[in-house]
């Protein structure tokens, strides 16, 4: 990475001012673990970054036992998610996944919001959150809206956010029984991530990393043909981690192991 380009900073602890400052050239910024390298590599060139870290509301984790959900502020770091007792209790798969993102430094500075909004396909959190059917709260000067994380992350490095919107928080329903997450990670970033929720009559499967954005499907338990179709139908890309047929094969084998041969 070379030196960073000329850059401005907007910093406020007031969400309103932050919202008023964000546009296509003034981009939201928290941990910087994705944005700073991207700027250094010349992939992003905003005029200024708008620092979200001082807005208190974005840094909260709140467990709502009545609603059966945990609300996580967009500027909460991976490390806090991994270590938070409420997350560990109610969302153990997410806590573990957050505890294995990148490395200890990335986890200390990188945030859940940055991770989702950068929409790097080779990401664990988006896959796990989509599997958990999490929702996101998005705000701009124009108001607020709530949408599924599944609708937020819409492609490789692509979200449905407008330039003036920021992700405020993610609300994650308590983890259902029978959930697990497995990833193949031979390189710096995962090659393949697979979240499954197994109930008596359903197989819920979410696949990430190998696809442009996580893909979720629900099958009747025991529907092996459906599993075959699902794996065969995924638009899996080739990259330095391997060709599509490799990833598809590992995916199919993994699904066979966790679903079809499960006791």
């Amino acid at each position: 990475m070379g030196v960073l380009p000329e850059l401005g900073l907007v910093r406020s602890d007031d969400l309103g001012r932050v919202l008023a400052s964000v546009d296509a050239e003034h981009v939201p910024y928290a941990g910087g673990t994705e944005l700073v390298p991207a700027m250094g590599l010349g992939l992003r060139r905003p005029a200024a970054v708008v620092d979200l870290k001082r807005v208190e509301a974005l840094g909260r984790i709140a467990v709502d036992a009545d609603a059966g959900a945990v609300e996580i502020g967009a500027a909460v770091t991976h490390r806090r998610i991994a270590e938070h007792p409420g997350v560990r209790r109610h969302l153990p798969v997410l806590a573990r996944a957050a505890g294995r993102v990148g490395n200890a430094r990335v986890r200390s500075t990188g945030t859940i919001g940055g991770n989702l909004c950068f929409a790097e396909p080779r990401s664990d959190l988006a896959c796990v959150l989509i599997a958990l059917q999490a929702t996101s709260e998005v705000r701009s000067g124009r108001g607020a809206r709530t949408l599924a994380v599944d609708e937020l992350v819409i492609g490789a490095f692509e979200t449905s956010l407008s330039a003036d919107e920021i992700l405020v928080s993610v609300t994650v329903p308590f983890e259902p029984a029978g959930m697990s997450y497995w990833k193949l990670q031979s390189y710096e970033r995962p090659t393949l991530g697979v979240a499954v929720v197994v109930t008596e009559d359903r197989w819920e499967i979410t696949v990430g990393a190998a696809v442009e954005r996580p893909v979720r499907t629900v099958l009747a338990a025991g529907d092996s043909a459906g599993l075959d179709d699902f794996a065969a139908g995924l638009d899996i890309g080739a990259d330095l981690c391997g060709p599509a047929e490799y990833k598809r094969s590992v995916l199919r084998e993994h699904l066979r192991t966790v679903l079809e041969t499960a006791p």
């Binding site: 401005g8 907007v10 910093r11 309103g16 001012r17 008023a20 400052s21 708008v50």
Partner: peptide
């Protein structure tokens, strides 16, 4: 876009 609550955009410093 409606004007936000509070003040307008904060200035960007280099």
């Amino acid at each position: 876009p409606r004007p936000p609550e509070g003040e307008g955009p904060a200035p960007a410093a280099t």
